[in-house]
Write a protein that binds this DNA or RNA. Structure first.
Length: 430
RNA sequence: GGAGACGUGGCCGAGUGGUCGAAGGCGCUCCCCUGCUAAGGGAGUAGACGGGUUGAACCGUCUCGAGGGUUCGAAUCCCUUCGUCUCCGCCA
């Protein structure tokens, strides 16, 4: 949600920022509505002020026993009333028009975000690790001997359809260990607070983080109106909704391991093999709530937290800044972390960390007061994956694969595997 | 699913037709006093929107969950709705 006053103050800047995202200018349309809205408000308020003044005199006239004056004022008030009703209605309608329009406009990119049209214009920030060279042609995760029994897509199709998986045995165990490892690392080393939230939420929550009203088709909804969260960014960020926070309580840093649900509308035919893109998956999410001046440095901190997980798992990755044409609806700046997948011979997204500025905070009315100050200000919010568990499993399997089809598991993970170090070609933990 | 209660400012909590944007307390800010195992005294302290200045003052409007109604006038009465809690039922 945008601050209408900023648009009023600098419509050219607003349009220029939209243009960076490849969008047509909107300020003149917005300001036209805003102007008519304000005119209606002023008219309605003037009428109200008149009525209030007359209304006050009514009491006085009555007290004085001046019946004629009493009746005159009464009629006047009744008159005003009708006038007010229409004016207020018009004002409200204009306001609603404005809100509805603003709610569909994406956030403006931060100044240092590289210009670009699509993902091809993203800029690499850094690379970590060297993709291992194999003496054989590395396989994709679902082709590995070690995985054959433990990742059953046909069984899942029987239960649920495509884009689901049934994991069992060693694969399920490693998947679970990864999630535990991530959460434990974030809480004990990165200073994040573990939270466990609902996965079913109301409209308001989805509106607050920006999934609604524009992207309803990307998520699932229950028959009684709840939404299945596409990410726990929704619940973690909305913890701040409607809150008035003390400056001293910022930054707030949360992490959660949750199920996520996405309809994957529009991605038909993409990544249909394996468990890279599922309707239901697990993710460890990070969310920060900060003062405005701290949010950009917090993005770097958050990105490092995610990268740290990959480094400890010895998985090569690269970090890119998304260009203006590729950043998401609510983001001002986004770092994507892409992990090396030898089976695909490429880097694939495993984390996305974004700073949203006050965009979400404004939508959900999340504010704080500076110590000694009276004016509330909107907080800034950030979210990032730390990491997508299923994709991380894929990366661990593909990067650790041996020629015989077994998989060596990263040392950092061993404590979460009861000391086991590999999955044999027979699919057994050893 | 059935029955009932409740929804007030950063928080707690009074307030049942006008003098209420709202007592009191907590918290916070500033000032004073006093000093020793920290306390006492005083003052201030809601938000949004519009106008106006243009990072002010000031003026107006609205807001006591939300929306509507009654009334000259509503936090206070009525209706609708959302939410929370309690008890019962059902289930993990």
């Amino acid at each position: 949600m945008h601050d209408i006053r900023l648009i009023r103050d600098n419509p050219e800047g607003f349009d220029a920022a939209l243009a960076k995202r490849g969008l047509a200018p909107m300020s003149s349309q917005i300001l036209a509505i805003d102007e008519s809205r304000r005119a209606k408000i002023t008219a309605a308020e003037t009428a109200l002020a008149d009525r209030n003044a007359a209304s006050k005199q009514v009491g006085a006239a009555k007290a004085k026993g001046d019946e004629a004056e009493f009746e005159r004022l009464r009629a006047l008030v009744a008159d005003k009333k009708a006038e007010i009703a229409t004016l207020e209605e018009e004002a409200k309608a204009e306001d609603l028009r404005l809100q509805d329009l603003l709610a569909t406009i994406p956030n403006l990119p931060h100044d240092d975000v590289p210009l670009g049209a699509d993902e091809n214009d993203n800029v690499e920030l850094r690379k970590w690790g060297t993709p291992k060279s194999f003496d054989f042609k590395p396989k994709e995760h679902f082709e590995l001997a070690a995985v054959q029994g433990g990742m059953d897509f046909e069984m899942a199709a029987k239960l649920s359809g495509s884009r689901f998986v049934v994991m069992s045995g060693a694969v399920a165990r490693v998947h679970r260990a990864l999630a535990q490892f991530m959460i434990d690392t974030h809480t004990s080393e990165n200073g994040l607070t573990e939270v466990n939230t609902p996965v079913l939420v109301r409209d308001d929550a989805m509106m607050g983080t920006g999934q609604l009203p524009k992207f309803a088709e990307d998520s699932y909804q229950t028959t009684n109106g709840w939404w299945l969260i596409p990410t726990s960014e929704v619940t973690l960020t909305n913890l701040a909704a409607g809150e008035m926070m003390d400056e001293a309580s910022l930054p707030r840093r949360y992490t959660a391991h949750s199920l996520c649900f996405r309809s994957e509308a529009g991605s038909a035919g993409r990544d249909t093999s394996g468990m890279l893109r599922q309707h239901q998956f697990e993710k460890v999410e990070m969310v920060s709530v900060t003062r405005p001046e701290d949010s950009l440095s917090e993005l770097d901190r958050m990105t490092k937290c995610a990268e740290g997980i990959l480094e400890r798992l010895e998985l090569p990755y690269r970090t890119v800044v998304l260009c203006t044409g590729d950043i998401g609806f609510g983001a001002r700046k986004t770092h994507d972390i892409e992990v090396w997948l030898p089976g695909q011979d490429t880097y694939r997204e495993i984390s996305s960390c974004s700073v949203c500025g006050d965009f979400q905070a404004r939508r959900m009315n999340a504010r704080f007061k500076r110590t000694g100050e009276k004016k509330p200000e909107f907080v800034h919010t950030l979210n990032g994956s730390g990491l997508a568990v299923g994709r991380c499993l894929i990366a661990v399997l593909e990067n650790g694969q041996q020629e015989d089809g077994s998989v060596r598991l990263p040392e950092a993970l061993h404590p979460w595997l009861g000391g086991k170090t590999m999955i044999t070609a027979d699919g057994v933990m050893a």
